[in-house]
Design a binder for these strands. Structure first.
Lengths: 326, 326
DNA sequence: CTGTTAGCGCTTTCAC
DNA sequence: GTGAAAGCGCTAACAG
């Protein structure tokens, strides 16, 4: 490995001058600067990041913890977050959660050299999260409801559930199904709570099917096997709605003619013509990702003394062709 | 920040012993070990990664360079690659390419502390790639055809193009459209070359539309405006095929009744019922991601002296419902 | 403007 | 089995 000492020797200057050329070129005489730069190029020198961050106590890294990227929701979250991280001059380090072993990533990320950690809509293990907090690294939660007093950015999930109920009710559906949301997915539980309260107030009849996204067929079958089928299904996430759509089409249903389908989250795919999924989401002119990353960067720069901020965004209806009035 | 010295003081041992507890617990007496571990927990101590890698000259990081994750192809590539990287005990660092400024990521990744770099199907800037090579960091290209002598993993793109032509010809289509592939996307160019050669040999008539994926409407319109419309369209990637499907449905075509659609790459989404896209891809029992990451890890461990390896995978037809015989 | 020097937190000989 | 001491490559005073 070529070090700044090698460069210094070749350029005939001290090692400190090489360092200056890198960090404060203005403080170096033009001829010296040129000599050093020439040596740097000639030796193909790249400063050692480890040595730098050993001194600066900064890694320049922000870690992201996300679920698998084959879920478009996660892919979007990760994509947008990385972009913001790069824009702000940090490097993004990713830790993917394995659904078969959800807590392991929470454990391994504790050893990260990252200056901040962004957690996407993942399965939470409270104990692991508690340990993570103890590291003192600023945390930022997206679309999650961790134990209080943490930085949070999300759709107002309870309101979103209520908005779903309100909308479906306005379409005259009274016999409705709720699909998805495992106990560990706290944000989906909140969506359901909001939905359920508002649906009750509107005298709607709810069939609820809690289920993992990969295990939707049985609960859907059970729902549709009833004599009184739901005329509308609300999916806890758009991704769940896609799966449901797949299932419903296979079973001969037309959407929305036979059954209305409403998602929550308004994932990008939902707007495509072949999906055309009505959904409850955050208004398109809010940039929750910038808001979240900005807040995290601020927390990093200010040190840990600052108190946490919860940012909740009001739900908006995106009406498309998967729902209809009856 | 709490250092190993703090731990040593609290435990009443030397700093070196703390280090041993971390790296070679067997070489430490049980009572001492317990004392130190207690101190570690009490102080919430986490070893400084920068100091460690300064000595070991290892960062334990592998960088991934990919296009935006809103493209499912990229999301799949990134997802699978990260998984393999994690499984092998490395940390994944991601650099996303911005389509409006494709070379900037190639420049910024040169400053990475990563021990290896994996490049997904991105837009290549030859000069930037050349500079990247000069860093001496082992490189691994997925689905790309960089200037020779680099580690490479990919579908045999030329053969895949030929297989597409062969298949479409077997379905009796003779008037066909080819969609997508910009000059900078070398792997797509190869697909087209293979297709074109084989199509010619089968006396097929080709309408070719080179276009960026976000700019498909005009070339598709032009293609379909002709008196002799193609009866089949081959998309350079599955993602392009999805967009085309979207467009075709909008314009009143039924697939495959009015027009057959064939993708290349066999992206996971293609197998979903609502897509059901026939595609040419790599056999499902090959794990190209493990192959690629394993090779890269080997290159990292062996040092740079090893010569590069090209892994090309034979194309396989995945016949679904978007294509039909005429 | 440039060189000398002292560490950053850790691993790793080398003594004891 | 444990401690003392020497750096890893770099930045940041401090002199000159």
């Amino acid at each position: 490995m070529v070090s700044s000492i090698d460069v210094a020797k070749l350029a005939g200057v001290s090692q400190a001058t090489v360092s200056r050329v890198l960090n404060d070129p203005d403080k170096v005489n033009k001829p010296t600067l040129d000599k050093v730069n020439a040596a740097i190029r000639q030796l193909n020198y790249r400063p050692n990041a480890a040595a730098r961050s050993l001194i600066s106590r900064k890694s320049g890294v922000i870690a992201i913890v996300s679920g698998p990227l084959d879920n478009p929701d996660n892919a979007e979250f990760t994509n947008e977050t990385i972009k913001r991280i790069q824009e702000r001059g940090f490097i993004a380090e990713i830790h993917l959660q394995d659904s078969s072993n959800p807590e392991s990533v929470l454990l391994s990320v504790q050893n990260t050299q990252a200056e901040g950690i962004i957690l996407g809509s993942i399965v939470i293990d409270e104990i692991a999260i508690a340990k993570l907090k103890k590291t003192g690294i600023p945390l930022m939660f997206f679309d999650m409801e961790p134990a209080a007093n943490e930085h949070t950015v999300s759709l107002d999930n309870r309101l979103a559930g209520a908005a779903a109920a309100e909308y479906i009710s306005s379409l005259n559906h009274s016999n409705v199904g709720w699909l998805g949301g495992e106990p560990s997915e706290s944000h989906l539980q909140l969506r359901y709570q909001g939905f359920q309260e508002c649906a009750k107030a509107n005298n709607m009849n709810i069939l609820r099917a809690m289920a993992a996204i990969d295990d939707l067929d049985a609960p859907l079958s059970a729902m549709l096997a009833r004599k009184e089928r739901p005329t509308a299904i609300i999916a806890a996430t758009d991704m769940i709605a896609y799966r449901a759509m797949d299932f419903l089409v296979d079973y001969g249903y037309r959407i929305p003619d036979d059954i209305s389908l409403l998602g929550i989250g308004n994932a990008p795919l939902s707007a495509m013509s072949y999906m055309n999924l009505s959904s409850i989401g955050i208004s398109g002119d809010r940039d929750i990702y910038s808001d979240g990353v900005d807040r995290l960067v601020k927390a990093i720069e200010e040190g840990s003394a600052n108190k946490s901020v919860e940012m909740k965004y009001a739900p908006v209806l995106f009406e498309r062709n998967s729902t209809r009035k009856i």
